[in-house]
Design a binder for these strands. Structure first.
Length: 340
DNA sequence: ACTCAGCTCGG
DNA sequence: CCGAGC
DNA sequence: GAGT
């Protein structure tokens, strides 16, 4: 819960150590060693805050989130300028293909490994020989599009198009762009629209957006494809898809997130992120006997033998972002300071 | 030995 | 239910 | 991989 200063020292004395540890982290990320990846991320964040060079194992061990194994690696990097464990990792064709397949939208470690084991190594292998879902085909076809960053002014252009389309149907609907754009980032990977309407039911909101606005945006060739959307059976409230700006061929990922007005505070926290900030604030809530999710801040729930939730708990706050911070005892942080 | 956030959607 | 995305 |  420390405030992020934004002073991202390019000339950090531990820059080389951080660079090598990050390569190790990326390796663990693509080999699906989830908790090691997170441990490396925490250790790197801790090292970034240091203003003096960490050279020995003992020095490293004194830093929180750096244990004996990472401390040993840090010492090795400083004294030899390399990490043997990293050089043991094989950058073979399977590893190259794994890195490629993991970039496809809708493909994770499980699917990527399956394809590797089936002998596939290129996107063309997948297109010609593998059985693909509709979304996977889209993900492959637009792998470069989805990797293209969206400059802030283009994000705002998306905002104007969507806002106009919605307000043409109902001017009372409120639209907020969330994600990295709300955090003030100069560019974004996708565009998140948080959509709500005061004094309206979710059914009403869903009907307007799904049945009227989205078809209209398709007709105007702004929306190009639906990837995931709430169905009748779910109480769901999201639409994931792809859109292009007029005159552009680049497909970008956009999300419509439909939120009851009473839950806007919790939804804003969730859809503003970043993900690290969300995890830490949720962990803090759980430590304080509460639970934070995209719907609100709750008193703690009863959990069964295997940790599954038995009860939902009582709602403490959900409408007001600032009140949720207050109840958690966290000083207010504007979105641009939620980068961890 | 156990936690590390918690949820929704597609298949 | 599991995998994946957010 | 680290913390409890």
């Amino acid at each position: 819960m420390e405030k992020h200063t934004g002073t991202e020292d390019e000339s950090n004395p531990n820059a080389r150590t951080i660079e090598v540890l990050k390569q190790m982290m990326d390796y663990y990320d693509r080999t699906n060693e989830h908790w090691k990846t997170i441990a490396y991320r925490k250790a790197i964040a801790a090292l970034k805050k240091r203003t003096r060079k960490i050279t020995t194992k003992e020095e490293a061990l004194a830093i929180p989130f750096i244990g004996s194994r990472l401390a040993g690696k840090i010492e090795e990097i400083v004294f030899t300028n390399r990490l043997r464990r990293l050089e043991n990792t094989n950058f073979d064709s399977a590893d190259i293909a794994l890195q490629l397949f993991l970039k496809i939208y809708g493909v994770g470690h499980s699917q990527a490994s399956l394809w590797i084991n089936q002998g596939h190594r290129t996107l063309n292998d997948l297109l010609t020989k593998a059985t693909l879902t509709t979304n996977q085909k889209i993900g492959i076809e637009h792998i470069d599009d989805f990797a293209t960053r969206i400059p802030r002014d283009e994000v705002e252009h998306h905002g104007r198009i969507v806002r106009n389309a919605i307000h043409k149907e109902d001017p009372a609907i409120e639209i907020t762009i969330g994600g990295s754009c709300r955090r003030g980032a100069p560019d974004s990977g996708d565009v998140d629209f948080i959509i709500t309407k005061p004094d309206a039911s979710m059914e009403t909101l869903r009907t307007i957006i799904l049945d009227t606005v989205i078809p209209s945006l398709f007709q105007h060739h702004y929306l190009r494809h639906a990837l995931a959307s709430s169905t009748a059976r779910s109480d769901g409230s999201k639409w994931h898809g792809c859109a292009t700006l007029p005159g552009s061929k680049i497909w970008h990922r956009i999300d419509f997130l439909l939120v009851p007005h009473a839950e806007m505070g919790a939804a804003l926290i969730y859809f503003t992120g970043n993900d690290i900030f969300n995890r830490s604030i949720r962990l803090l809530a759980s430590r304080k006997g509460m639970r934070l999710n995209q719907r609100g801040l709750w008193t703690d729930v009863l959990r069964g033998g295997k940790r599954e939730r038995m009860t939902q708990g009582a709602l403490l706050e959900s409408r007001d972002e600032r009140k949720i911070f207050g109840l958690l005892g966290v000083p207010w942080r504007p979105p641009e300071h939620r980068v961890c």
